[in-house]
């Protein structure tokens, strides 16, 4: 049986992890490779690296990091952040990334999804969508959820699938950082509309939230950052509990 995936997300700046992490056993708390190895060993199913570097050196630094991760880590990983061209994607995939995630660049130029899917295959193209519920309507946002567009989440998700995305990473800006659970209603509706895997993001606070997003939200995977970084939830414990709730996970 295909299992539900647990995906820790690491924010990267200038080749280092940004958000504080609370691993006492880390030699270097800012080293994404070391953290990635720990998560892989603890049973993470995949990893996401989100790059927020804004310097000229961005591309080179990120490609080097991807190469180091690929060298050490034996589970799949996705790289996102500032990717806007075929060339960007080519460099990352050639450095060893399994998938790339595009967000604002896809909204600005939807044709990019078609081009990337045709050149590299749908399986490695994740489209990340940040959305916020405003007056009862889910609206797509840009720049890390700061800038609203006029695009509706469910229309955009369908378009993204038709254009050849292999997966959707949906972050609810209403839930992100709240630790009150994932946007399960919107997730379940997404699942009924589209036929590609959906990664739930934003709102993880406890083990029950993960269970809910798989059962109620029908998510295929769940992504979280701080609950893992600060060891509020350990991946092994999480997966054991999910398994007890009858959710298929890789133990």
């Amino acid at each position: 049986m295909l299992t539900k995936r647990i995906i820790p997300c690491l924010d990267i700046k200038d080749g280092r992890t940004v958000k504080g992490v609370n691993f006492v056993d880390l030699r270097d708390a800012g080293d994404p490779v070391e953290l990635a190895e720990i998560y892989a060993n603890e049973g993470a199913d995949e990893l996401v690296f989100l790059d927020i570097t804004a310097t000229e050196q961005r591309r080179k630094t990120l490609a080097e990091l991807v190469m180091h991760v690929a060298e050490k880590v034996n589970i799949p990983f996705t790289v996102g952040g500032g990717i806007s061209s075929i060339e960007d994607v080519e460099i990352l995939l050639n450095s060893g990334a399994d998938k790339v995630s595009i967000n604002s660049s896809a909204v600005k130029n939807p044709q990019l999804i078609n081009e990337l899917a045709a050149k590299f295959g749908s399986q490695c193209i994740v489209v990340a969508i940040d959305a916020k519920k405003i007056k009862g309507e889910w609206i797509v946002h840009l720049v890390g959820g700061k800038v609203p567009t006029e695009i509706k989440l469910f229309d955009w998700a369908k378009e993204v699938e038709e254009r050849g995305a292999g997966e959707i990473l949906f972050t609810s800006m209403n839930h992100d950082g709240t630790k009150n659970g994932f946007a399960n209603e919107a997730l379940a509706h997404l699942s009924s509309l589209i036929n590609i895997p959906i990664i739930a993001s934003g709102g993880a606070g406890n083990i029950q939230h993960f269970s809910d997003t798989f059962i109620i939200g029908k998510a295929d995977a769940a992504l979280a950052a701080s609950v893992f970084h600060f060891k509020e939830i350990e991946i092994k414990t999480l997966k054991n509990e999910l398994s007890k709730n009858g959710i298929a996970v890789r133990l």
Binding site: T3, E167, P197
Partner: peptide
């Protein structure tokens, strides 16, 4: 079911030396 299939699934009915030491239903 959703296509592509993405993620960890089990392999079983294992034959051949390729799978020596691998348990049935490994992910």
């Amino acid at each position: 079911l959703k296509v592509p299939q993405i993620g960890w699934n089990q392999i079983e009915n294992l034959k051949s030396r390729l799978f020596q030491g691998i348990k049935e239903k490994e992910h």
